[in-house]
């Protein structure tokens, strides 16, 4: 049973209080959306969960193990994987090598044929098998995003945090990523999806967290959150202007 327990996280950068007493929990294979305006602290929260930065106070438990003071590579082994807001493939390594890294890092005695077969399976799923020996730098931006998702499959974590996977992505590719999210979720992994695209969030997620400049102002089913006056005030805006919101953000993300 997957269980993430975040308690009273605080993070300051100098005078800037980026996360204020953030607490929430994840139980089982949930599919959760994390939204908030630019600079709300979503990426910072991801970085803390992942161990890349340490919180000033608060605790994080994953499956009963405390992870907030662990280095990232330990956290990855305990079972939390994440993607980066800006794509970070290993550019001068081949696609297959990109996939080997997490598999071999997690399992010390991994069998090479097994790993290779699994990698090829993952590539099939991402429709990228023919690119397996290309250097990652030769891939398009979208393909590199897929590759990053593929690496997570190879890591095989319990919880996956996707930091804006839809930024700068064409609708066809978006379909693949949708399918990826659904499939991985059905396989029993919890997913936290960070995005500024409300329609994707609302169509995929069954639970929504809203972060507003460090405060976790809402946590619940999408419909409830949508109508929550606090959220409407702080974030979603008065009217039904979701669409304009989306396009704005898309611009920012692709920049």
């Amino acid at each position: 049973m997957i269980e993430l327990e975040v308690k009273n996280l605080n993070k300051r950068f100098g005078g800037l209080h980026v996360l204020k007493d953030v607490s929430f929990g994840i139980k089982g294979a949930e599919l959760i959306g994390l939204i908030g305006p630019n600079g709300a602290g979503k990426t910072t929260l991801t970085n803390i969960l992942d161990g890349a930065i340490k919180p000033n106070s608060g605790t994080v438990y994953l499956n009963g193990q405390r992870i907030d003071q662990l280095p990232p590579f330990e956290v990855a082994k305990v079972g939390l994987g994440r993607t980066f807001q800006v794509t970070r493939s290993f550019r001068r390594m081949t696609v297959l090598e990109n996939l080997y890294v997490p598999a071999l890092a997690k399992h010390v005695a991994a069998d090479k044929t097994e790993v290779t077969n699994k990698a090829l399976e993952v590539l099939d799923f991402l429709t990228m098998r023919h690119l397996r020996n290309e250097y990652a730098q030769a891939l398009s931006g979208g393909q590199q995003k897929l590759l990053e998702l593929g690496r997570l499959l190879m890591l095989d974590p319990d919880i996956i945090i996707l930091d804006e996977p839809f930024a700068g992505v064409h609708p066809t590719l978006m379909e693949i990523i949708y399918e990826y999210i659904r499939k991985v979720n059905e396989e029993g992994k919890a997913i936290v999806l960070i995005s500024h695209q409300m329609d994707s969030i609302f169509s995929l997620c069954k639970r929504l967290l809203v972060l507003n400049y460090g405060d976790l102002i809402a946590d619940g089913a999408p419909e409830d959150v949508k109508n929550d006056p606090v959220v409407v005030d702080a974030y979603l805006g008065k009217d039904d202007d979701e669409n304009s919101d989306t396009t704005n953000n898309e611009k920012q993300n692709s920049a």
Binding site: P71, P72, F73, R91, R92, P102, L104, A105
Partner: peptide, 25 residues
């Protein structure tokens, strides 16, 4: 071996390698 794979990964992107379970240090 995995050594070569990991050091190349950390050359390319240390944070990403660490996030995927490589003990970069």
């Amino acid at each position: 071996s995995r050594f070569g794979l990991f050091v190349r990964a950390l050359r390319e992107d240390e944070d990403a390698a660490a996030a995927l379970g490589v003990n970069t240090v």
